[in-house]
Design a protein around this nucleic acid. Structure first.
Lengths: 130, 130
DNA sequence: GATAGGGGTTCCAGTTACTGGAAGGTCAAG
DNA sequence: CTTGACCTTCCAGTAACTGGAACCCCTATC
């Protein structure tokens, strides 16, 4: 498979696949003309990566997950620890966004949004309460 | 006020304040020895920026908000449009995180997390359902 | 007067995870 | 033989800072 094929198969842009090779997540072969040649295992790894990224794992965590995946003497506890950390991060971010969302949607609803200058949003930004 | 003083007053690290000057969000004076000298208005702007950033506005949006704030012929609609866009972004991000959170917390709960290798998290990453 | 400290200054590089673009090689079809 | 769709590498840019090095300034103390 050439890069375009695995790109289609995985849903990743070719650029990203090259980048993943650059940082050592995958190591495709090369054919005589210099083109990357991807095995089924490479394609499989890329799909693994897409899925892990979509669950919120960082690229470095994905690297660890891949090595755990390939190590059949792994302890599932190690995987779970990584996943729990990712989950915690996600939940922290959600709490932060919820704060923002609450404050901002209140302001948006209180602003009439017409051609007059007075605006509760700017007033709040200029004089936030402690 | 020196940079340390406004840093304390605003809660921003000095580095960030210098960065905000570099990108033209603030323009503090300079004293003879080359130190930045911040007016009350500068401190006020920095606090405005902190608050706007904490509501999820990008730095570029903050620039616009500041200029709207300083323009008394502004239309509140322009402010509201910016805020509504920020709100939309936040809500989109929350939906995305909610997806992740749901999938990931399910996996974490299904993984026993001991010293054995079998792990539903890795299994799911390796063979995601379509 | 020398020195120690706690300010301040600039500039350069690094972070995360890609993405865009330029310049150019390869290959199959017409 | 050229066209077009691939592929290659390399360089630069994104967002919003952050860390660190090398150096200046000011005050207080020995």
């Amino acid at each position: 498979m050439n890069i375009g094929d695995v790109a289609e198969a995985s849903g990743l842009p070719p650029k990203t696949i090259r980048y993943y090779e650059e940082i050592g997540l995958i190591r495709p072969q090369r054919s005589g003309n210099g083109y990357r040649v991807f095995s089924e295992a490479d394609a499989h790894k890329l799909i693994f990566l897409v899925r892990a990224r979509s669950l919120g794992f960082s690229v470095e965590e994905c690297r660890t997950l891949l090595s755990l995946y390939e190590d059949d003497t792994r302890a599932s506890a190690d995987v779970r620890t990584l996943a729990a950390a990712a989950l915690e991060r996600i939940e922290a971010k959600m709490r932060e966004l919820q704060q923002m969302q609450g404050a901002l949607s209140d302001l948006v609803h209180r602003c009439h949004g017409d051609d007059r200058p007075d605006c509760p949003i700017l007033e709040d930004l200029a004089a936030p309460r402690a």
